[in-house]
Structure formats: structure tokens, C-alpha cells
């Protein structure tokens, strides 16, 4: 049990995918203008990341390794991720048309979110088993959601703040992200996995 807690702690705080590994920066900057869209994106990404982490583990373990096709990993994982994203899009469209409208183009863009492919490849690299892959994927998604929502909340306040003209808009957002990243460096060495 401690092992899984450590994986979660590690992926959410210490090795945060956005602020420490710098993966998934596109939605991090793109969907963080409003808190509601950020929360919706966080939920959708959590679902996709966890599901694709597990299913890419299964594909790797039961299709690629027995056939000796490990070198086809990347293209296979991209296929798996694309399918999971399509499936998520259909489910969201059916269950919550409002969220579907809010997420708009960003929902299909989860396909090209490098954090999703990163998690799938890192699972193989670190030789995770099924449960570990599940927790690693969920932890990565939770870490992504945490910083995305925090960042969106910060940006909502920054838009009403008195920012010098040269720093307005995206520049102050990038500077904020940099400072957040520095803050997350403080977790380094907290756990060793």
C-alpha cells in the first residue's frame, strides 16, 4: 500500500508532469484562462490519462512483448491514445453536452497532449505492473489537474491585477508558470521512487 501512496505522491508533487517534467504544457497554457474550463479539462484528462495508461500497459504486455514488437511501441501507444480520446469524446458528448461545448477543441487535442504518451512510455521504461500503471497514470493526471486548476485560479486573479504593460497577457502567465515550477522544485527529494 505504501508503494502506491508513494507513486501517487511522487507523480502529483515531486515529479509533477507539468512543472517538473514539462510535459503537457499546451493545455496548461491553453485552457487555463477560466477556472470552469480548467476543471472540465482536468476531469477529461484524468479520465483519458488513467484509461490510456492502463490500456497501453495491456497492449504492451499482451501484444507487443509476446510478438517481440517492442520497437513498435510509440506508434501503437499513439493508436491506443487516439482511440481512448475518441471514446471519451463520445461519452462526454452523450452525458454532458455542456461540458462538451465548454471543452470544444481541447477534448480532441488531448490526443496530442504529450503527458499522455509520456505516461505510457514511462510505464514501460520503469517496468510498472498493471496496478502500478493504474496509479502512475492516475497520479500523473491528478498532478496535471492540480497545477492546471491552481494556475487557472491564479490567472483569473492576474487578469484583474495591475500588470506592467510589457508583461500583460501571455508573458505574465509564462512568468507565473515559471515561479510555480520553482515552487514545485521544493518537493524534490521528498520521496525517492
Amino acid at each position: 500500500m505504501t508503494e502506491y501512496a508513494l507513486i501517487l505522491l511522487s507523480t502529483v508533487l515531486v515529479n509533477n508532469f507539468v512543472l517538473v517534467k514539462f510535459l503537457g504544457l499546451c493545455p496548461f497554457m491553453g485552457v487555463s484562462r477560466k477556472l470552469e474550463t480548467a476543471i472540465g479539462m482536468a476531469l477529461a484528462t484524468t479520465f483519458v490519462l488513467t484509461l490510456s495508461s492502463v490500456s497501453s500497459y495491456l497492449v504492451n504486455e499482451y501484444i507487443l512483448i509476446p510478438l517481440g514488437l517492442e520497437y513498435m511501441r510509440t506508434i501503437m501507444f499513439i493508436l491506443v491514445i487516439a482511440v481512448v480520446v475518441q471514446f471519451t469524446e463520445m461519452v462526454v458528448h452523450k452525458t454532458s453536452p455542456l461540458l462538451y461545448n465548454v471543452l470544444g477543441i481541447f477534448l480532441p487535442l488531448i490526443t496530442t497532449n504529450c503527458a499522455v504518451l509520456g505516461v505510457a512510455l514511462l510505464n514501460v521504461q520503469q517496468q510498472h505492473n498493471f496496478i502500478q500503471s493504474l496509479f502512475y497514470g492516475f497520479g500523473a493526471a491528478a498532478g496535471f489537474s492540480l497545477v492546471l486548476i491552481l494556475f487557472a485560479a491564479l490567472r483569473e486573479r492576474i487578469t484583474v491585477a495591475d500588470v506592467p504593460e510589457a508583461f500583460q497577457g501571455t508573458s505574465i502567465a509564462l512568468i507565473t508558470a515559471g515561479i510555480m515550477s520553482l515552487a514545485f522544485m521544493g518537493f524534490a527529494g521528498l520521496v525517492k521512487v
Binding site: V59, I63, L67, G68, L69, M72, I75, M76, L79
Partner: peptide
């Protein structure tokens, strides 16, 4: 094998 595997999985 690669072609068949990819085609079947897809």
C-alpha cells in the same frame, strides 16, 4: 507480423 498486428489491433 508488424503489419498484421497493427492491422488487427486497429
Amino acid at each position: 507480423t508488424v503489419i498484421i498486428t497493427l492491422a488487427v489491433t486497429a
